Simulated assay, not measured.
Amino acid sequence: MKTMSRIAALGLAAAMLMGSSAGVVQAASLVQVTLWDKGASTEMPMGLAYATPGLDLSKATMGIKAVPGAVKAGEVTFNVKNDSKDTVHEMIVMYLADPGKPLPYVEAENRVDEDKAGDKGEVSELDPGKSGTLTVELKAGKYLLICNVPGHFGAGMWAELTVDP
Rank of each mutant, 00 (worst) to 15 (best):
Asp56Leu: 02
Leu48Asp: 03
Thr52His: 03
Ala15Pro: 02
Leu12Asn: 03
Ala28Trp: 02
Gly39Met: 08
Trp36Ala: 12
Ser29Tyr: 03
Ala27Thr: 12
Gly69Ile: 12
Leu35Asn: 05
Lys38His: 13
Lys81Gln: 14
Gln26Arg: 14
Val80Leu: 03
Pro68Glu: 12
Val31Tyr: 03
Asn79Asp: 12
Met44Lys: 12
Val31Met: 08
Lys81Gly: 04
Ser84Tyr: 00
Met16Gly: 04
Ile7Arg: 09
Ala9Lys: 05
Leu10Ser: 08
Thr77Tyr: 01
Gly19His: 00
Val76Trp: 01
Met16Thr: 11
Val80Ile: 09
Gly19Ala: 15
Lys72His: 08
Leu48Pro: 00
Tyr50Asp: 03
Gly54Ser: 01
Ala66Gly: 05
Gly19Asn: 04
Pro53Gly: 09
Thr34Gly: 07
Gly47Val: 04
Ser84Cys: 13
Asp56Met: 04
Val31Gly: 06
Ala70Met: 12
Ala8Met: 09
Gly69Gln: 15
Val31Ser: 01
Val67Thr: 15
Ala22Val: 12
Ser41Met: 14
Gly47Cys: 08
Met18Val: 15
Thr52Arg: 06
Thr42Arg: 13
Met62Asn: 11
Val80Met: 07
Val31Trp: 03
Ala28Thr: 05
Thr42Asp: 08
Gly74Pro: 10
Ser5Leu: 14
Leu48Met: 07
Thr77Arg: 15
Gly69Cys: 06
Gln32Trp: 02
Val24Ser: 07
Met18Gly: 15
Val80Glu: 02
Thr77Leu: 13
Ser84His: 07
Ser41Phe: 07
Ser58Pro: 01
Tyr50Trp: 08
Gln32Val: 11
Asn82Ala: 05
Thr77Trp: 02
Ala66Pro: 02
Met18Lys: 00
Val76Asp: 01
Arg6Cys: 00
Gln32Thr: 12
Leu35Thr: 06
Val71Glu: 10
Ser5Arg: 11
Ser41Pro: 01
Gly23Lys: 11
Ser29His: 01
Val25Trp: 05
Ala49Trp: 01
Ala28Gly: 10
Leu48His: 02
Pro45Asp: 00
Thr77Met: 15
Thr61Leu: 04
Met44His: 11
Lys72Trp: 00
Thr52Ser: 11
Thr77Pro: 09
Tyr50Thr: 06
Leu10Glu: 04
Ala22Tyr: 10
Ala70Pro: 04
Leu12Cys: 13
Thr34Pro: 04
Val24His: 11
